[in-house]
């Protein structure tokens, strides 16, 4: 094998950057599928059937309790076996990104459903009453009055979600995905672990500003989307409150929304 020199942090950053595109891919796809799944779960949680509510709640609890690396492995080893032995389809050749997207979509389903539910419940009930009283249908009232307000309440959590995905997605290297983290790991192996520190520090110097940029982007979005036009002070306090509430989530795993 060719011996490579990875001693320059700057060169390593240049080498790693193109691999970010795969990272962005699974972040966006997991967000998309997770969002759809979460919508379903949130509807279940708010519906009137006890059984559906219980199922959604149990699912969310399970996802909250599992470390993402564990679920990633379970999905990675379970899915091929399941499809080979039950569906009789060999999926050994599917791209590894599929497992990553599936794993995090499963997580996000649980987490985002809690975000949606608490955001929905944060909108006061009288808004629905008022909308119905002027003759809007329940659906119109939901889309035009409730949803915009709920979305605003959910923005801080969405920012956390994206940063969470970015950070936890790094674990995808453990199943051999060559995203930005996987490439760093591969570079380290290719160079016989002679330059681990320059390689991994280069990677950290990619993640760090990226997370900051994402955080700031969502802050701008929040300011733009602020439909309630609260004066800046109360808006700031609210933001702080949400941050405090969901801060734990930034570390590792999706957290439940506001407890009832």
């Amino acid at each position: 094998m060719q011996y490579k020199n990875y001693s320059s942090i700057l060169d390593n950053i240049k080498e790693l950057l193109p691999y970010l595109s795969l990272t962005f891919q699974y972040v966006l796809l997991a967000l998309l599928f997770g969002f759809i799944f979460a919508l379903l779960l949130a509807v279940m949680k708010l519906c009137k059937y006890k059984v559906l509510r219980a199922i959604a709640q149990i699912y969310t609890t399970i996802m909250r309790c599992l470390p993402s690396v564990v679920l990633l492995f379970v999905v990675y080893f379970f899915l091929p076996k399941f499809s080979r032995e039950v569906l009789l389809i060999d999926i050994d050749d599917v791209p590894k990104i599929l497992f990553v997207v599936l794993t995090f979509a499963l997580f996000l389903g649980g987490f985002l459903s809690e975000v949606m539910r608490s955001a929905y419940q944060a909108v006061s009930k009288d808004q629905m009453d008022a909308a119905l009283s002027i003759g809007l249908t329940p659906l119109q009232a939901f889309i035009r009055i409730i949803l915009p307000q709920a979305f605003y309440y959910a923005i801080p959590n969405l920012a956390n979600t994206v940063i969470y995905l970015l950070k936890e997605g790094a674990l995808a290297y453990t199943i051999g995905l060559i995203d930005v983290m996987g490439r760093a790991y591969q570079m380290n192996t290719l160079s016989y672990s002679v330059y681990p520190i320059p390689i991994f520090v280069a990677l950290a110097l990619i993640y760090w500003p990226l997370a900051i940029v994402i955080e700031q982007l969502f802050k701008i979005l929040e300011r733009l989307m602020n439909p309630i036009k609260e004066d800046k002070k109360t808006a700031g306090q609210k933001l702080k409150g949400f941050k405090a509430k969901y801060l734990g989530f930034l570390v590792q795993t999706p957290k439940g929304g506001a407890e009832k």
């Binding site: 009288d126 808004q127 009453d129 008022a130 909308a131 119905l132 009283s133 002027i134 003759g135 809007l136 119109q140 035009r144 009055i145 915009p148 307000q149 605003y152 439909p227 309630i228």
Partner: peptide, 29 residues
């Protein structure tokens, strides 16, 4: 509901709409 209207104790204006939009909402939609 379309033949009646309701004035609420706590006003219940749509928080995400301007004053004008609060009034036009029921007319347009």
């Amino acid at each position: 509901r379309r033949k009646t209207a309701f004035v609420f104790q706590n006003y219940s204006l749509f928080r995400n709409k301007t004053v004008l939009q609060n009034v036009t909402e029921g007319l347009i939609i």
